[in-house]
């Protein structure tokens, strides 16, 4: 029996989402981005909104997100995705606009844009992948790096006296009147993946219903930056990250 005998429509239980391109991803094996991209592609396809969805990609590991998910994209300068998305959304009100940002983009260089877009209640979805490190530039400290966590710029561990505290930007966004839905999820188990998909879908529904800004934080791993295997990373995340960044809805109205 060769492989073509196995891959038959009636046997299919899982497939590549139709909006994910058939190209090699640049993400490291074990990285959470691939899963999040898949969820986005599935949600957009299932909602039937691919022809009116526009993504805003960040500077960071997900800078090339536009190469993988088959919708229109604009690539923003570092931290500016929420400002870019603001205009895209306001000028084409029938379109559904999302940003896809990492922790540096969302919570360091782009803090002002993130907070103000959310505070204006822009009808956009903000997907926030928090892996507590700067992956693309080689594993430097992020605003969300945990106390004691070793990175290229905190080689002896993050210290409060030197580097300040990990920034819980999602908590800040939850208290703003412009946000309608703020949730923190993960994609480290099949159950968590299913939950996160439902959250992303809800966020897109909110954007279509013009309810305001929805923020979906996905606490993630960076096994390359953390210098662990993917499995160890997932365990380390569950042990350490969830303590500082507990999963669940922070706001849902």
């Amino acid at each position: 029996m060769d492989i073509q005998d196995i891959i038959k429509e009636e046997n299919k239980v899982y497939c590549k989402p139709e909006l994910i391109d058939d190209v090699h991803m640049h993400y490291c094996p074990g990285c959470s981005h691939g899963v999040v991209h898949k969820l986005l592609a599935e949600v957009i396809a299932e909602m039937g909104i691919a022809d009116r969805t526009v993504g805003v990609s960040p500077v960071g590991c997900a800078v090339f997100a536009y190469n993988y998910v088959d919708v229109d994209w604009v690539e923003a300068a570092h931290g500016r995705a929420p400002a870019v998305a603001t205009a895209v959304s306001r000028l084409w009100q029938d379109n559904v606009v999302f940003t896809y940002q990492g922790d540096g983009d969302m919570a360091a260089i782009g803090t002002a844009e993130s907070i103000h877009a959310a505070n204006r209640g822009e009808n956009i979805v903000m997907i926030f992948v928090n892996n507590a490190i700067y992956g693309m530039t080689g594993g430097q400290m992020a605003p969300t790096t945990l106390i004691g966590q070793k990175t290229a710029t905190t080689p002896y561990g993050r210290r409060v006296d030197l580097n300040g505290h990990p920034l819980e930007i999602t908590n800040l966004m939850a208290i703003l009147d412009g946000t309608c839905y703020v949730t923190r999820q993960a994609v480290h188990t099949p159950a968590a993946v299913r939950k996160t998909k439902a959250c992303i879908k809800k966020a897109f529904e909110n954007a279509i219903a013009k309810k305001g800004t929805s923020v979906v934080e996905i606490v993630s791993t960076c096994n390359s930056g953390w210098k662990m295997s993917p499995v160890e990373s997932n365990e380390w995340m569950a042990q350490h990250m969830f303590e500082k960044y507990p999963l669940g809805d922070l706001k849902n109205i």
Binding site: R80, V84, A85, T86, A87, R90, E113
Partner: peptide, 10 residues
Amino acid sequence: VAAINMVYGG
């Protein structure tokens, strides 16, 4: 900074 990036998006 935000304003010019809104222009970029628009």
